[in-house]
Each structure stands twice: as C-alpha cells, then as structure tokens.
Design a protein around this nucleic acid. Structure first.
Lengths: 228, 228
DNA sequence: GCCTTCGTCAAACAACTGTTTTATACATCC
DNA sequence: GGATGTATAAAACAGTTGTTTGACGAAGGC
C-alpha cells in the first residue's frame, strides 16, 4: 500500500537535464538537510515539515521523491553506510602489520574520531549510529552489517592473535567488548559532560585518552591471557 | 500556565480515608503502570492513554493526580532515585576494606546486576536510566545526582588509592571511565545480541564477564600506574 | 441537611504529524 | 503542437497525543 507507486529511485538521470519547472535539486537539498537533522535528533524526533522547511522544499516533496519518511531515512542510512566502509579502512592497518601495532592504530584513530565527532566532517555518521542504537529503526540492520560487524571481526582477529587462541574463544569477545566499550564511552554525551573532571574535547585530551585506553587494554589482554 | 492549579501533591493524606466513589488507589495504580511503561519504552514513547488503560483508570486521572504527563514521570524518577540510593549501598564495601577488594566487589555485584537486569526485581531502574541517557528529560538531573555521581566518586576514590595519586589526577577519571564503560557495555542491548559470540545472559556468563572485567581492569590500572 | 471538596468519567479540544489529493507549470517526445 | 511525464505547490485528510472541560456521585465539615 505504500512504497513504490512513485519513482523511488532518482527520478531524473544525471546529465543536468532538469525537467519540470523546479530548480531540480530539491531531492538533493532534502537529502542534505535530512542527514543533518536525523543525525542530530533521530528518526522519531524529526518531522517531515522540519526537513522540508530547512530544505526550502514543499511538504509533499518527501513523499514524491522518497515514497515516505522512512524511505528518505533509509536513503540517508544507505549513504552513511557507504561512507562507513571508507572510514573503516582508515582504522585498519595494512595486512601483515604486527597485532600490537594494529590495535594501536585502531584505538589511536578511532577514539579521537569518536571524541571529536563534532569537529569531524563525517561526524554526523556517528551521531546517526548513536541514534540508531538508542532507538533502532529498520536502518539498524544496515548500520550493523556495514559498520559494526566489520569492526568487531577486525578487532577479534587482533585480540585472538594477541591472546594466542582461537577467534571463537570466549575471552576474545570479552576483550573486544572491553576495548570497544572504552572507545565508545568517549562519544560526546551531555550526561558525561556534567561529571567533574571529565575531559574537555580537544585533540590533546583525545590523544591522551587514546594512549590510556591502549595501555590499559594491552595490559588487560596480557592479564586475561595469563588466566586462560 | 500549567502545573499547580491542581493538587499536585498527594491529594488525600495517608490514613486510608478514601473519599469520593473511586476505589481510591487510582493514583498508585497509575504510578505502578507508568513505572513499567516508562522504563520499557521511555518518556516519549509512552502515551498517557497507554498508562491509563493499563492502570484501568480514566484518561484525565493523570492530569488530576500529577498535573501532567511530565509530573507523573518525575514522580516515577523520584521513586527510582530513592531505590538507587539503596542499590548503591549494595555495591559498596564497608569502610576500611582494601581497595582491590572494594573494586572487586563493585564489579562483581554491579556488572551481573546490569547484565541480568531483566531478572532483577529493580531492573526497571536501569532501564529507566538507559532511557534517560538515550534521550534526557528534566529527570536526568535527578538520576545524575542520585545514581551516577555517587558511583563515580566511589570508584574514583578506589582508583586513586590503587594508583597512589590524587583523586583529581586525570588518570583517575580515565580509569574510572574504563571500568564503568566495560560494565555498562553488558546492559542488554538488541544490537549486541546480534553479534556472533556475544554471551547469553545467564548467571554463569555474567560471573565470567565480571571476572574478566576485574582482571582486565586491575592489570590496566597497574599499567597506567607505571606510565604516570 | 446543605455545601464544599474530592475523585472519577465521558467527551471534546487543540496541536501536531505523516500522507494524500488536486492543480499547475515546465520540458520532452512524437 | 498536443500528449505525456516530471517536479512543485497549496490544501486537505486522518490519526494520534497531551490536556481540558463539565458533569456527577460520594464522603466530610458545619
């Protein structure tokens, strides 16, 4: 009853051949504004009217170009998934690197990116992920498969090597959880900002936090290795 | 314009002297159902109609007894804060206990309680806290002050003692973050449940997770102590 | 015994939201 | 140059939500 009775894909091809009397980039403007708003407030807390107003588009444009609100949202999520694949490569060290160096790179790149997410060009992606974790939508599966699972697999391989055990040893997942939870904890959060002594978000404190998590985790892994 | 034009406090005193033709415990029934529903779905996702239907009360009863929806919610949060104070005592070891033992007790009590929150009589409190962290309401301050800050202070004292440094040393907060983030990561989460190898929630796996976090963290603290 | 207060109820209100309808202007195709 | 399809616009629609209204009955105070 709802969905593909309208174009749903990009209605006009690429070649700038705009048809109709609009300026033709309404779809793109909506997409851009929706990305920002969804990332900042989550699917439920953004109205179609909000988006269209920010995009200077008519209310019906969302239905027309994306079928419905969820269609627009999933388009945003799909765009995020693409970028996440690229971003994931940034935290992964080349094949053959020693496990300690791979873990080091992972934490030193990933944690500051999370902590300084507001200064990051693609920071909206992490905001979107946070919103999805807070209240999942049908877009959750995409984010899970494109962003989270690859990281878990990558980290698991490193940890298994460090522990010198099979990748499905229960200790591996627990160590991965310990590392990942520490990193995620540095995502900006109005709650934590109200804790005294909680670090400001600067490049310096982010680097310090990364060094801490790295040292903390390497020692932790070593300890867990002993108590096999 | 909105607020105290109606009773707002409990309208009738304690002594069972019910007046009017109602059964007199409507207020309590609403409070009970609201607690469950708010904890499960969060403030925004529960409607006054939901609550009243579950409580077999009239729609207007919320306005009458609590002023408005937020008034009811804050009443629930205040009730949670009371219980949290008691719960906090359960994770704290008596004065004079060695820091390692205090940390040990903290993690061994706190983590399983989080992980098995659904089997806990007061598990709804943690659900409520999670909802508040996901999307804060005016109740966030109460939860912050009554539940989170006391724990941070308690943990900080332990860690400072273990590190042998002042409590406001930046390393202390980073270690507290590492410990707390690891514990919180074991809160039930539909996302994590979809990760292969993520442990089931049983008493056994919860205990194993606690032992892991304890060993991991003690080693981590020791490492951080060295790199002072 | 009257009157006030309390608790409850059904109904309505007002605001908001996602979606649909209808109309219209423009470009392209035949 | 009319037919067709595209893109936009204004308005209306239908559903939900928090809140308020006005009425009614039962207890307590005097």
């Amino acid at each position: 009853m709802r969905g593909q009775r309208r174009p749903e894909g990009r209605p006009a091809g690429g070649l700038g051949r705009r048809r109709g009397h609009g300026d033709g980039d309404t779809r793109q403007r909506i997409l851009d504004e929706a990305r920002e708003l969804f990332a900042d407030f989550g699917f439920d807390h953004v109205t179609v009217r909000d988006i269209c107003q920010h995009a200077a588009a008519n209310l019906a444009a969302v239905s027309y170009h994306f079928g419905d609100k969820l269609g627009l949202y999933l388009e945003v999520v799909r765009g995020a998934a693409e970028k996440m694949k690229v971003a994931n490569e940034g935290v992964m060290a080349p094949e053959g690197t020693a496990p300690v160096d791979r873990l080091s790179r992972y934490i030193r790149v990933y944690l500051p990116r999370l902590m300084l997410v507001d200064q990051d060009r693609f920071g909206w992606i992490h905001h979107l992920m946070r919103q999805e974790m807070a209240e999942p939508t049908p877009g959750a599966r995409i984010i899970m498969d494109e962003a989270i699972l690859p990281r878990v697999r990558y980290l698991s391989a490193i940890v298994a090597e460090l522990l010198g055990c099979a990748i499905d040893d229960p200790r591996v997942m627990r160590c991965v959880a310990s590392i990942q939870s520490q990193c995620l904890f540095y995502l900006p959060d109005p709650f934590r900002d109200r804790v005294a002594n909680w670090p400001e978000r600067t490049a310096r404190t982010a680097a310090a936090a990364a060094e801490h998590v790295l040292a903390f985790s390497l020692a932790g892994i070593e300890a867990v290795k002993g108590s096999g």
